[in-house]
Design a protein around this nucleic acid. Sequence first.
DNA 1: GTGAAAGCGCTAACAG
DNA 2: CTGTTAGCGCTTTCAC
Lengths: 350, 350
Amino acid sequence: MARRRQAVTIKHVAADAGVSLQTVSRVINNEPNVRPEMKERVQASIDKLGYVPSIAAQRMSGSRSYLILAINDRERTIADWQSRQGTDWVDQMLLGGMLTCAERGYRMLVELIDTHSDHVERELGAAIAALQPDGVIVTPPHSENPLITGLLAKKHIPFARIGSKEPGHGIALTMGDEHLAKLATEHLAGLGHRRIGFIAGSEEYSLADWRIDGWREAMENAGLEHEGLCQRGDFGFESGVRAARALLDLPDPPTAIIASSDQMTLAALEVAKERGLTVPDDLSLISFDNTPLVRFTSPPLTALDQPIAATAARAVELLIDEGRDYVSDTPVVIEGDLVIRGSTAAPKRR
Amino acid sequence: MARRRQAVTIKHVAADAGVSLQTVSRVINNEPNVRPEMKERVQASIDKLGYVPSIAAQRMSGSRSYLILAINDRERTIADWQSRQGTDWVDQMLLGGMLTCAERGYRMLVELIDTHSDHVERELGAAIAALQPDGVIVTPPHSENPLITGLLAKKHIPFARIGSKEPGHGIALTMGDEHLAKLATEHLAGLGHRRIGFIAGSEEYSLADWRIDGWREAMENAGLEHEGLCQRGDFGFESGVRAARALLDLPDPPTAIIASSDQMTLAALEVAKERGLTVPDDLSLISFDNTPLVRFTSPPLTALDQPIAATAARAVELLIDEGRDYVSDTPVVIEGDLVIRGSTAAPKRR
DNA sequence: GTGAAAGCGCTAACAG
DNA sequence: CTGTTAGCGCTTTCAC
């Protein structure tokens, strides 16, 4: 690898503008104590020479690295990519996070880390040591992994925890899981459903339980019985099949089901078909992910839209503006919406 | 922003192992001229202290940046992410590129750049100056933009051009577009189709024409007439609608259509439905993208699978291993497959 | 084989 | 307000 030097450095600018390096540095970083006149002169040279600071050098001299790390679960992410089922979590994170980073001169780097590995700390530590990011976004299930959040807090690296409510170090953000579950439940109750089943996600994710809470509360508010109407899945298709069967095998089966992931909703749709039930006439269905595929099933699925991009964008903003030693009290909540499509209708049989 | 120093540096390791900095540096970079015994001792200290070199420092001292830039078209990529239609191009690039990078201690950074902007060079130049990547992957339509490839060549930055065949600077890679088009055509001809229509992509992409070539050649080889059976679209849904209508309005309409994108195939499916044609009985359909959504349409679409991940992986390997001043003669071809699903069958009416 | 010295491009700290 | 000095952590000379 040949030695590649920066084409135009701060020195060239300084020489061109006839000022010291420091003055150029001040202009670049928008620091005070530069006369407007000087500033203009320097800026002119910068533009003329097409100068762009090297982030490596900036980082080296103890300043920022202009890098935000977005950490996702390795196993799950790779499985999603390989299966090509349309999960666009990473895309939405990039859409929100990367574009917001770009607006402020930062870059977002996606990093995959094994939650279950016994050397999570080593993996994360290595990424941090190598990259020296100015901020880290952790997603479920990492956001609830104390090994990860602890390490980040200890190293005083600003970090945002998406899908985490715990008070403490780092910026906690949620997408209003209870609220979303309530929205779905109320929509169904409003259509006249009395028996509304719920397929929950893995206990490994707290948000799975927040969703149950929202559903249960909405059921109670509507004066509906919810005993026995909640089945636990693990977000995956197979678990959805089992859960849907269990619900439909009930003596008094639900006429509507809310499932905590697109795959589990898809599974419920399959089970309904296999039993000769028509969706939405015999069974209404709501998916907890508004991923691409829900639009292409038949019928297209009514879905809860989680504002992943908006959440990532907010996380980046907070990280950059006030991430330093941020301590969460209550989480930042970015609420989503219910998108009504063809899988929900008033119950035909009661 | 507080001044954050590296926790454990090469100095600590050197002190711990009782050697000079250079020796540690040599061990890190696997350079010769280190006695195995020394090497072991140093490695032990590295492991003990959990030392990881700072990329910024490595880059600063004229070595590598361990960064590969993957450049995609800004407008198109954002539109894809926002529309949530399941285009997983970026995901597949990450799957192949990022994981391959990780295997070799590199990171992949996604960067969006406007092809149509008049300041492409400035945008790209800025990204390069700021990040100093060791390699760049350019995707269509950037891979055929001389402003981009020219700049990269001029700066002697190793780069790979995906979807480009031109001899010259940079590593040219394709996914065997003609071959894929032939595969599809032969499959349909084998089923007994005589009239096989083709919906091409935008002329802005050379690969759109390579696909036409493959289709035409296969038609000729099978002794089939192809005059008037090719309609030009722009990869988007609307253009697909127009093209499909034009084809089906023909006096002797095709019994099968190959469309150069998933959206255009979807459009053809819609048009077929609107005309009361059953797929595949009245009309067979093949999509040139095996994106997630093609599995969820009804019927699921037979599709040409472009090995995006494998191509990105290969690009990274070549970039790292022999990217320096690489000059392409013939392109590296990573061939894809035909995935047969429910949208193709023997023609019912002849 | 190994070590010492110099410097990459930039900013922090301190002078003026 | 502006300039000077001293590094940041590492690799590249070039000695030994």
